[in-house]
Design a protein around this nucleic acid. Structure first.
Lengths: 141, 141
DNA sequence: CCGCATCCTATTAGATACTG
DNA sequence: CAGTATCTAATAGGATGCGG
């Protein structure tokens, strides 16, 4: 799976490098820092098939705390990736759904997750190899 | 830019949801947690056009510390995404380059970064709107 | 049911000084 | 040049209890 077609990729990366990977110029950090937190991506995946209520998201992601779910949902809402709908029932129910902007992320996200899944085994192998080699060196030294 | 073609995306996400977004079953966390750290992605971008020496990477990413660069490079090497080549010159020079596995990430990464760049303005707008609304509510209350 | 506030801990990362 | 070691500050995240 060499998704490496040389020239065009190099050109893309070149461009980002010329903006110097610099905090100020560069949207990459700004956006990826949010997706890089522990829960954002997982929540976006959970919402991929349609709206979910707070408690349903929790059921999809068993080990997220109420606190972090609330907070991450706020952050995603603030960034315009999801929208929040309160139904004034009693007790209240609140529904979250992907915004158009959020849905536009699905394509890239599928690609990335697909990659992660495809190479998961390779990465585990690499880790194991690295660790045993490091251990061998440590023992020898 | 609706990169949303419904059925196939939904199917993909469904699958990942059925593995329950669970720590144990799910490669997503494992892999994305590493890419999600502060520097990994930036380093991979820096190496996209070819091998670079330690100090050159630092020049590409002005605000990374030696400590974090060393550590992140080790982690990427451990995962098999980059390789390390020591030239026993004096003073020593060490070169880092993308492995085939690392190059296989370039496609997905370009897609994600392209998205980030495309929507950067929208996200900033959404943030500004959210913040002024929140402020309005705070003042009214 | 949803979510905020508080408290506390663990992890991450920056600064600095030192080594082959 | 390419690291390592140590210390410290900042941040992320978990537990819990209260309130609409």
């Amino acid at each position: 799976m060499p998704s490496d077609d040389g020239a065009s990729l190099a050109a893309s990366f070149s461009y980002w490098q010329t903006v110097r990977l610099n905090p100020a110029t560069c949207p990459v950090r700004d956006v990826l820092d949010r997706l890089g937190d522990k829960w954002s991506t997982l929540i976006l995946i959970a919402l991929a098939n349609g709206p979910l209520r707070f408690s349903m998201i929790r059921r999809n992601i068993p080990d997220i705390s109420k606190r972090m779910l609330t907070q991450t949902l706020r952050d995603l809402e603030r960034d315009g990736l999801i929208t929040r709908h309160v139904f004034p029932t009693k007790p209240p129910s609140v529904e979250y759904r992907l915004s158009p902007l959020g849905r536009s992320l699905q394509g890239p996200l599928v690609a990335l997750i697909g990659w992660a899944e495809a190479v998961h085994g390779d990465i585990n192998d690499a880790r194991a190899r690295f660790d045993t080699e490091a251990e061998a060196v440590r023992t020898a030294g």
